[in-house]
């Protein structure tokens, strides 16, 4: 793809020779990959193939036993999910990690709420600023949420997903990782999530989408990485493979 080639020189994130072992089991075995600005990678593989473990090393949940991770030019060690976020690596988990009793605005700012003085006495949460900023980022992503003051509980699955994405974008994510983003959604909602991923791409934010859903992967991914038994068995442009070929790669049918 044309957009890819122009950016090819500087990967946003580069992982080299990552290895993670749990006791005798090698969950991720010598995997390298890189991701470029505005690129969407679909990460696929059967259960236990090592996709989650691979991602968790990038998002700070696990520490790799071997290998290196570079963000831009710099090598990083991601000791915790918090550290990953402060580096600009935002992971959106399947459960979205939203407080359902709170509204979209608060959820976007949770843990990093801006404050202002209240009558010069104490620092109060600046709800007005939060509301404005939330509105701005949602507009930028072309997300329509009728009432930002409604608790997340009252929103649809797609809207929740959108709030989680807006949170990542607001905090200047350099890389967004999405874990099974459409798993619990109906078809129209899935489409909205696909649109959001494309919006992120147009904002030049690279996205890694972990998915079981082939439609997901083909709908949004520029490049597809296939994992099997802890190893990367394919890393190909999405336009050059078919669903059947992917499945064959995932289950290892080409061999034997």
């Amino acid at each position: 793809m044309a957009t890819q080639d122009t950016n090819k020189r500087n990967p946003v994130l580069r992982a080299t020779n990552l290895v993670k072992r749990f006791g005798g089991l090698t969950a991720v075995n010598d995997v390298s990959f890189e991701i470029y600005p505005g690129e969407v990678i679909g990460l696929v593989g059967d259960n236990g193939a090592g996709k989650s473990t691979l991602i968790k090393m990038v998002s700070g949940v696990y520490r790799p036993d071997e290998g290196h991770i570079y963000l831009g030019e710099q090598e990083i060690t991601v000791a915790s999910p918090m550290e990953a976020r402060s580096l600009g690596i935002e992971t959106i988990y399947q459960d979205l990690a939203l407080c359902e009793n709170l509204d979209a605005t608060v959820n976007i700012f949770l843990g990093r709420e801006p404050t202002k003085r209240f009558l010069g006495l104490f620092k109060q949460v600046d709800r007005g600023l939060m509301l404005n900023e939330a509105q701005t980022v949602l507009n930028r992503l072309d997300i329509k949420i009728p009432n930002l003051r409604r608790p997340i509980r009252q929103m649809s699955g797609g809207q929740r997903q959108a709030v989680a994405i807006a949170r990542a974008v607001y905090w200047n994510a350099r890389l967004v990782i999405m874990d099974e983003p459409t798993a619990a959604l109906g078809v129209p909602e899935q489409r909205k999530v696909h649109e959001l991923v494309r919006t992120l791409r147009s904002e030049n934010v690279p996205v890694i989408v972990i998915s079981h859903n082939m439609q997901d992967v083909f709908a949004v991914a520029d490049r597809i990485i296939v994992m099997r038994r802890g190893q990367k068995v394919a890393d190909v442009p999405a336009s050059t493979v078919t669903g059947d070929e992917l499945v064959a790669l995932m289950v290892g049918a080409g061999e034997a």
Binding site: L96, A97, L98, C99, E100, N101, L102, V106, L110
Partner: peptide
């Protein structure tokens, strides 16, 4: 937030 979703 704690009462809503401690994990989040």
């Amino acid at each position: 937030a704690l009462g809503g979703n401690k994990e989040a």
